[in-house]
Design a protein around this nucleic acid. Structure first.
Lengths: 342, 342
DNA sequence: GTTAGCACTCTTTCGGGTTGAGTGCTAACA
DNA sequence: TGTTAGCACTCAACCCGAAAGAGTGCTAAC
């Protein structure tokens, strides 16, 4: 049996209707809903076929049909194709130049949540190219040195180092020159034992300080664990009865609060390194606790060598059309942000 | 009518039982629960009195009694008195020296949540004394200057400034000396128009840069808006049926996610500036959406001039005893942290 | 002052009847 | 051969009333 033209129309009508109402949809509804001018009986026959093909399921004998994961997948694929052709119209909301990156990302998450009525997430951009742009040691007081490390993309990291005795100006200058000479423009991979040994040797008695600085650099570069994730609209899940029973809601809220789980999405999206919008439907989700949800994600590029992720999480009967549109808009906002901002 | 010894015992028995079960408690239960050896009929008489006194209420005619806000208040006050005398035993969990403050605070929030099964929050310490400890401008590249501002308590803030043309070393040095000479040890209140004018005048053509630096300083000091709040265990509210109906849960989760609302608690706790543990019961809560909750908060002192807040939010039938104990433990951990850490 | 007893109230629970939506199947129709 | 009307059937949802059970207030007796 094949998915012919008419079946397609009916399937889409079923899904669309279900997305709006959240109720199983019956043959009579479709009979009136579409322009096919078919009686409910005919629709029923077609629906039996669609069920056999696996696109829809019946929650119980005398209920209407609801889309299966396969059905959603079909719908999403068809829709993506459509979107492909559209030219995205950028909105100006985000362009009110936000002073700070994290404010901006929070706002992006919130904007998406308000727009779509789903839960959303935005990760801060992480650098996947890691070159050191600038290093600076400054004497803060008698026994503390402030080390400032700037990575390509203006990620700035401060570390306070303890020192036994006060260092004089000349030494500070010497150390700064030493560090910048050897480390400027150097990537994480290039900092090897040889380079470290050279630095330490040249620093003489200040070798331990150099070692501490390098530790800080390493930490700055691989700051995987304290990756910032901004979320918004987690409470939207209460708008969808199928998600708001106690256990499910608790699990979801927990995922959103702990954020640890959400990193699985990032790993997944990084893996392919693709620039595409991804849609996970139900069981496809990489996160166990979100088997009843659908997740739409995309990566954004933030300047040279920086990449972040945005995602929307909602019920399977998600308004995919709108969600993908929203994701695209925000993505291109963030993509262009860096250029304009710099 | 007075609250005599026996009434007190009965009231406490009622509250204690209600805290455990979450169900209205009847006279017969109390009759068996306590050592008073009174029949249920007698208890009923006393309960009628307690109701008249306002300590307990009946949800409906033929139900048992539940504590009123006044009843909880009585219970809490009695308990605080008890705790007052106890010597707090510090736990070592937090003392595994955490590298970073925010990790530590997150862990503190989580620890409390796991311990108590309620929702918890911890704010990062904010400086209420604001003196500048150190200022540093560095040339990052041709057209950007990095300004690092360190506030008492080692709050560090970076800002990147745009400059039209490259500044030479001598100018940089001059600006740094100028800034540090005038601003070191200076508090926010002392940076007035006169001082700013002096600085600008001495900076000559670099006045605009000085202005930007001062803006950044101002922003660092009054960083009210991006106050970090760490929360944990928001999903615990699902453990208490009286909080987990859709509307309430949604509101609560929202408060925890937006965090904006939580700042009201901080304002409140700052107001008195006290060092006490505060308990808000039901309607006493400064947050509208938490009228069905109880909130326990405390401030902690983090080194000189820094203060943060910890709080636990749960149902009114909260295990106050445990919560206050937990808060005290964490509070003293954080209080002593700075000293040991420095 | 305490208690036993009883009538009363009110919520909760459970079963059963009803309703209504929706199906599958069959037979008739174009 | 595809479409449709009709009908019997299924099943969740809803309402209703009865019964159970928890708990109270009151009164009379101890």
């Amino acid at each position: 049996m094949e998915l012919d033209e008419r079946k397609t129309v009916i399937l889409q009508a079923i899904i669309k209707n279900y997305l709006e109402t959240g109720e199983p949809v019956g043959s009579r509804t479709i009979s009136k809903y579409t322009d096919l001018n078919l009686s409910s009986a005919t629709i029923r026959n077609e629906m039996a076929d669609l069920e056999e093909l696996g696109y829809i399921v019946q929650p119980h004998t005398s209920a209407g049909r609801i889309p299966s994961d396969k059905g959603y997948r079909f719908y999403v694929d068809a829709m993506m194709l459509k979107h492909e052709k559209e030219v995205e119209q950028l909105k100006d909301v985000l362009l009110e130049k936000e002073e700070k990156l994290d404010h901006m990302l929070k706002q992006a998450a919130k904007l998406m949540a308000v727009n779509t009525n789903y839960a959303t997430m935005v990760t801060a951009p992480r650098n996947y190219k890691n070159t050191i742009k600038f290093l600076q040691l400054s004497r803060m007081d008698e026994s503390h040195i402030l080390a400032v490390i700037v990575i390509e993309g203006n990620i700035i990291k401060n570390t306070v180092l303890d020192v036994a005795e006060k260092l004089d100006d000349e030494t500070m200058l010497k150390l700064n020159i030493l560090l910048n000479t050897h480390l400027n423009g150097v990537s994480a991979e290039e900092i090897n034992l040889g380079l470290i040994a050279t630095l330490k040797q040249q620093a003489g008695m200040y070798g331990p300080i150099i070692a501490e600085v390098i530790d800080a650099v390493a930490e700055t570069i691989k700051e995987d664990e304290d990756l910032e994730i901004y979320t918004s609209g987690a409470n939207n899940i209460f708008k969808y009865p199928e998600l708001s029973d106690n256990q499910k809601a608790s699990d979801l809220i927990n995922a959103f609060e702990e954020k640890q789980l959400l990193t699985q999405l990032i790993d997944e999206s990084d893996e392919e390194g693709s620039n595409e919008i991804k849609v996970y439907i139900g069981e496809e989700s990489p996160i166990q606790t979100m088997k009843d949800c659908s997740i739409v994600t995309a990566n954004y590029e933030f300047g040279d060598g920086m990449r972040g992720m945005i995602g929307i999480i909602g019920p399977k009967r998600m308004d995919y059309d709108k969600v993908v549109g929203t994701i695209k808009t925000i993505k291109s906002q963030l993509d262009t942000m860096y250029k304009k901002d710099n």
